[in-house]
Amino acid sequence: MRRISRRGFFKVTAAGSSALAISSTKKAFGMKEFKGYPDSMGVLVDLTRCIGCRTCEAACNKEHGLPEPEIPFDDFSVFDQVFHDGKRKRRTSDSAYTVVNRYDDTSSGAPVYRKIQCNHCNEPACLTSCFVNAYTKTKEGAVIYNPDVCVGCRMCMVACPFRIPAYSYHSALHPQIIKCNFCYDTRLKKGKPPACVEACPQEALTFGHRKTLIKIAHERIRSDPDKYVDHVYGETEVGGTSWMYLSSVPFDQVGFDTSLQHHPILDNTKSFLGFVPMVLGIWPAMFMGFHLLSTRGKEETEKKVSENK
């Protein structure tokens, strides 16, 4: 079966900007809250299990034939790397779909490792902000990208609340967005777990149906409340993500943005998009009315003036 873009339901048939503008709002509004595909897969990342071995990074590199790393994957000095005056740790790039960073648990002093990659949102901001529909949320849960239609505006990078997409800026002819695709083509659609999950020695990454993972996550918290922070990061953040996290230290101490909204980013544009049909419907009549009112009176007075002369 072909991948379904959920927005594909609303096929726009009329050309012309006004028709398009109306349809775009219809899409934003006609949609009831989207809870994600029922059989969406996901990954639960348990930070308490991650030992920072970077095997997932190596597996990802191999799976996707990414460029040779500058530093071997078994070299842990990368955890000491900081950028921009220490304000930024390593992040995903045009040669890495995923990276693991080390944080220090301020209370216990023990290191905490956190893997980052695309979280595969239920209602992704990259997808909804893309004006050429280069992104697709597959029914399996992956958010995949089609470089063949991408114009390179990088709106998705601006929109991504997790700052995941990277761009191959140094390519003159084929620049494109580079990000984790949940191993969609090579594994996920064949029913296999992503390479990183399979490689993880600790099963810090648990692969399964998103709804089952939510159950598992809450069960882990319930059965060991002293160990875990009582929150499943990604269950509701920005409308829910396919990749979710459990942690033993407060999420904001290990690089998570805990200020994110709990509804899709797309919702933020609705107050404006609601205004679009009003403008299209009301403006022409209103301004033509203004025009008639303001010019008819004037023409008459102008005539009178000229007559008087």
Partner: peptide, 19 residues
């Protein structure tokens, strides 16, 4: 080979470079 380590370490890379 998988970890790009040992005999397969990146040329000019390695621990010392960034560490």
């Amino acid at each position: 080979q998988f970890y790009h380590s040992g005999d397969y370490a990146p040329i000019g890379g390695g621990a010392g470079k960034v560490h």
